[in-house]
């Protein structure tokens, strides 16, 4: 009887996600233009990918992206959350403002940064340049495009982590904090020996999610640079999207999607093992 309650959710999920996902895995071994009949070609898509410079660049960019987002926003979030814990007064206000970028559509955030900050014509960069300190638009330089995008995503994202860490920090037992304080612990000692260990499960979970999300990043790259200039900011998800809808190489796109999923799968498996280990202790 209660089984019937699950039918709507599972039906929608299976039709929209599960079956197409299974088809994607099958298509990764086919050549298909999206219209005709798929032709089985074995591992050719993967062989082609592994010989493709752009694929390795995209993968490398995803790894750089992961490294940036595993460190900068997590450090910023932890530090700000700890300071909010010290400040107490006004923490609710800070929290709301820091969180604000999360509710703004990515397309809008991207355009504001593009036009009002990075642009050499209408942005702050242009203003600074005209004042005699030339600042190139980071999005148009192959060496900096990826970092230019990352800054936008950082602005959008770090407050979310801050709010999560702050919520976790408030659950660290008062007695522990009090005891450390009586023993004369400094700010850094407090952070290192009491607060961070107290919220370790939350930090671990956020790091795992960061890795998974870093391999999914799409919106900001697609809107700001479309992977350019010269593929310098290409990531796997934009590569897959372009292959499928611009080049109609759906088999290749499917192969890239499988690669992205493998990273997610490996990360999830690692997390489950970690959880199990902690459970055993």
């Amino acid at each position: 009887m209660h089984r019937l309650y699950l039918i709507p959710t599972l039906l929608i999920n299976v039709v929209i996600i599960f079956i197409p996902a299974a088809l994607t895995i099958a298509l990764a071994f086919c050549r298909w233009d999206g219209i005709g009949t798929p032709v089985f070609i074995g591992l050719a898509n993967f062989r082609q990918l592994f010989a493709d410079r752009v694929f390795w660049m995209a993968l490398g960019n995803n790894i750089i992206w992961t490294a940036i987002f595993l460190t900068v926003p997590i450090a910023m979030g932890l530090l700000a959350a700890t300071m909010m814990l010290i400040a107490r007064r006004g923490s609710a206000f800070f929290q709301v403002i820091y969180f604000l970028p999360m509710v703004i559509a990515t397309a809008i955030t991207a355009r504001v940064w593009q036009g009002m900050i990075y642009s050499p014509l209408t942005g702050i960069a242009g203003l600074v340049t005209r004042a005699g300190f030339p600042v190139p638009n980071p999005l148009t330089q192959p060496a900096t495009a990826l970092y230019g995008i990352a800054v936008v995503d950082l602005w959008h994202w770090w407050g979310f982590l801050c709010v999560i860490f702050f919520a976790a920090l408030r659950q660290v037992p008062q007695e522990q904090i009090e005891a450390a304080r009586i023993e004369g612990a400094s700010f850094w000692q407090m952070l290192r020996y009491v607060l961070l260990p107290g919220i370790r499960p939350t930090i671990t979970l956020m790091m795992i999610m960061t890795i998974i999300w870093s391999f999914l990043v799409f919106d900001f790259v697609y809107i700001l640079t479309q992977g350019g200039p010269a593929f310098s900011s290409e990531v796997l998800s934009t590569l897959a999207y372009r292959s499928a809808f611009y080049d109609l190489a759906v088999g290749k796109a499917a192969a890239v999607a499988v690669v992205i999923s493998l990273f997610g799968l490996a990360t999830t498996a690692f997390y489950i093992r970690l959880q199990a280990k902690e459970f055993d202790q």
């Binding site: 929209i16 197409p20 996902a21 994607t24 999206g34 897959a240 499928a244 759906v250 890239v256 999607a257």
Partner: peptide
């Protein structure tokens, strides 16, 4: 945790 790209293409076509 499944990427959208994993189901996007067959779904679209």
């Amino acid at each position: 945790t499944a990427p959208i790209q994993l189901f996007l293409f067959p779904l679209y076509f």
